[in-house]
Each structure stands twice: as structure tokens, then as C-alpha cells.
Design a protein around this nucleic acid. Structure first.
Length: 333
RNA sequence: GCCGCGGUAGCUCAGGUAGUAGAGCGCUUCUCUGAAAAAGAAGAGGUUUCGCCAGUGCAAGUCUGGCCCGCGGCA
């Protein structure tokens, strides 16, 4: 109640399909307006997943940064956090929510949401401009719309048990437990069904309707590219990353104890390179499949953004100048 | 020139004994309440059409004959 009268803090969101140039734009804006960046990417949260996930490279720590962070702590010979302050810099700009989880463990939207809220608060306390930048629509939406997610932690034992059932059985079960939820769920999607059953079983109540608690004043900027252009950008970036040792990175991940199955489930680069390393497909086939898969992914991302547009205006921009103007206008109100 | 195999959706191919054309991939669109690069769903495509022409049938990708094209073998 007390915060209802205060104006909501300002937040800038930059979104777009993969390879569209979000990261560059975000950094450019951060440098211009004194911002810090909160990544919204479901794969870049993981350590050791750098090239494949397409992270911006980390700066070599320079003297200035080391001086300003005297209290830095070392975790496994790489410096990560000082309090909630991320130590991930790229071109002098602090990035949050990169390298915050182990690929051996599960990460989730809720963890993302909590961490992102914390990071945004930190940035605002420092008087800087928070910029969310990423391609994971669900993560962005969780923060921007303030989706209230049910307080039910995943129960992996239960999930494993349920996974043995057919989707038909799962749907029947859900219909018995929560008729209303069953009515509008995707009845062929085992993951959605299992999660719904999990919530009902744990809370012993029907699933409440979706609640949103937006807490920011948001300016959303989207990068849109023609499909031809995007395909070219994807191909170019892919080539570059193979050169940078993307295959080696996946090999290393597997050696460190991550199963092929898990790698394949990470999708895209990790999926196809893992298949290649297991000898399931040859090199040219892998490149071909990967390119196609990334193109599809980019399309799915756009579908998600279109959906977000129902709640929220997205300013699709064509060039940088336009973007600066939008932001200046955003602050003049 | 002869023998064999094939010519069906953009691509790769299914289509026993003739009865209103199918699959996978690709393409398009979409879903999403703690896995979201994941997990799922739907749709459009075959110029009255199955290389072309004729024949037999009530009925022909499906049978018969001829022709054209591709591949392999023999000469």
C-alpha cells in the first residue's frame, strides 16, 4: 500500500531474437546512459557455458575495477560476487545473472525472477539505470509483468513417477484433481500436465488464476530483423563460434560430468554438438541441423514477444539513434 | 541397341489382390502459471492430380501397349 503512491522505478528492456544484436545495443546504451545490464537468458546463467550460450566475453580485470572492489572474494579461482554485485564486466559494463548457476543443477524462472529483482534493486540503489537484455521471453515476462508464481517447489521424485504415465493418463488425473485447470491446459504436453498436478497435490487446492504484480515503469525496445537477414546473421555468428572452440567447450562440459542427455536437453548448440560428439551425426549434418534449429528458435522467440505485446508496448527499432530518442523521451516524463 | 530398376507434395520415399492419394523432413501458424534454447499443438502444399499418350474396366498411381526422361548392367 505504501508504495502505491510512489512512482514505479524505471526499467529498460531490450529484447529480440537470437543473433539480432541485443547485447551490443544494451552495452552501447549502458555506456551512454550510465546503466548496468541484467541478462535474461536461460542458458547464459550457467557457468562454463560461454561460447555455446553466446555470452558476451568477460573483460580481463583491470586495475581500476580491482581497486573499486577491494572486498572481492574468490570462488574457485574465478571472482564472482561481492555481495550482490556481479563481477562480470563486459566493455566496462557490469552484467548481472551471467554465470550464476552450475550446469549440473537445475535453474528455474523463479530463481531468475528473484535474482533479477535483487539485481535491479541494487542497480537502482547505485543510481544507475537497469537494462534487462535477453531472448528468454518467459524470464523477461516474469520480471516485467511480475508474474506471481505458485510457491510450490518442484518435486523431482513425484515428477519422475508421473513421467511414466502417458499424457492421456496425466490429463485424466488432472481433470479429477482440478477440473478448471484441466479445461484450459494443453492436454498433450506432459511437462505442463505434470507441473499442474504437482501444484494441486502439494497445495491440496485448485490452482489459482494467474496474478500479475508489475512493479516497474518499463520501456521495452525490440530488435526486429527480416528473416533473410537474421538467417545470415545466425550463420555468420555460428561460424565464428565454431572457430572459437565451441565443440571443445561441449567436450569439456561432458568431461566434467554432464551427461549427453542433459547436454542434449540444453538444446541448440549443446544438443547438436553433443549428438556429433557421440557419433550420432557427422559434422556437416550437425552444422546444417543446428543452423535450421536456431532459425526455428528465433521464430519461436518472436512468437513469444508477439504474445507479450498484448500486455505491453514494444518499440521495434530500426537504428540506434531512434533508440536514444526513445529513452530520452522516456525520462522526460 | 538390349536387359533391369525407377519417374507420386519443395525434398526423400510408402502406396498386397484396381474403388474418392499417405509418411518423414521442410514450410506456415500457435501454446505456455518454478525444466522455457525446454516441452507441446494445429495447418497449408499433389494445377480434377501420381512422367506423357492410348487401351481394358462401372472404376486405373494401381492392369495392358507405346513413347519420353533418369540410374545401373550388358554390348
Amino acid at each position: 500500500m505504501k508504495s502505491a503512491k510512489l512512482p514505479k522505478p524505471k526499467l529498460i528492456v531490450i529484447l529480440g531474437p537470437t543473433a539480432s544484436g541485443k547485447s551490443e545495443l544494451a552495452v552501447k546504451l549502458a555506456r551512454k546512459f550510465g546503466g548496468e545490464i541484467v541478462s535474461a537468458d536461460s542458458r547464459q546463467v550457467y557457468k562454463e557455458m560461454d561460447i555455446g550460450a553466446g555470452k558476451v566475453p568477460r573483460d580481463r580485470p583491470n586495475n581500476k575495477q580491482i581497486k573499486s572492489n577491494k572486498k572481492r572474494i574468490f570462488v574457485k579461482n574465478s571472482l564472482l560476487f561481492v555481495g550482490n554485485l556481479s563481477e562480470y564486466f563486459h566493455r566496462g559494463i557490469r552484467h548481472y545473472l551471467l554465470d550464476v548457476a552450475s550446469p549440473k543443477k537445475r535453474f528455474s524462472v523463479v530463481r531468475y525472477q528473484k535474482s533479477a529483482f535483487r539485481a535491479i534493486k541494487k542497480i537502482q540503489q547505485k543510481g544507475k539505470l537497469p537494462i534487462i537484455c535477453g531472448g528468454t521471453g518467459f524470464y523477461i515476462q516474469a520480471v516485467v509483468d511480475g508474474i506471481v508464481l505458485p510457491e510450490v517447489k518442484p518435486d523431482w521424485k513425484l515428477r519422475k513417477k508421473l513421467e511414466k504415465k502417458s499424457t492421456k493418463e496425466l490429463f485424466k488425473l488432472l481433470r479429477k484433481l482440478d477440473f478448471k485447470r484441466a479445461k484450459n491446459i494443453d492436454e498433450y504436453n506432459p511437462r505442463r500436465l505434470i507441473r499442474a498436478i504437482e501444484i494441486v497435490k502439494k497445495t491440496k487446492k485448485p490452482i489459482p488464476a494467474l496474478k500479475l504484480q508489475p512493479r516497474f515503469n518499463v520501456l521495452t525496445i525490440g530488435i526486429k530483423k527480416s528473416s533473410e537477414e537474421l538467417k545470415k546473421l545466425i550463420a555468420r555468428r555460428l561460424k565464428k563460434r565454431f572457430k572459437q572452440g565451441m565443440v571443445k567447450e561441449v567436450k569439456k562440459l561432458h568431461k566434467s560430468g554432464i551427461s549427453w542427455k542433459k547436454l542434449e536437453e540444453f538444446g541448440l548448440e549443446y544438443r547438436w554438438i553433443a549428438k556429433y560428439l557421440q557419433g550420432k551425426i557427422n559434422y556437416p549434418k550437425m552444422v546444417e541441423k543446428l543452423q535450421k534449429d536456431i532459425e526455428h528458435f528465433a521464430k519461436r522467440q518472436m512468437t513469444w514477444f508477439k504474445k507479450m505485446e498484448k500486455n505491453q508496448k514494444i518499440h521495434w527499432i530500426r537504428n540506434y539513434k531512434e533508440t536514444e530518442k526513445l529513452i530520452k523521451k522516456f525520462f522526460s516524463f
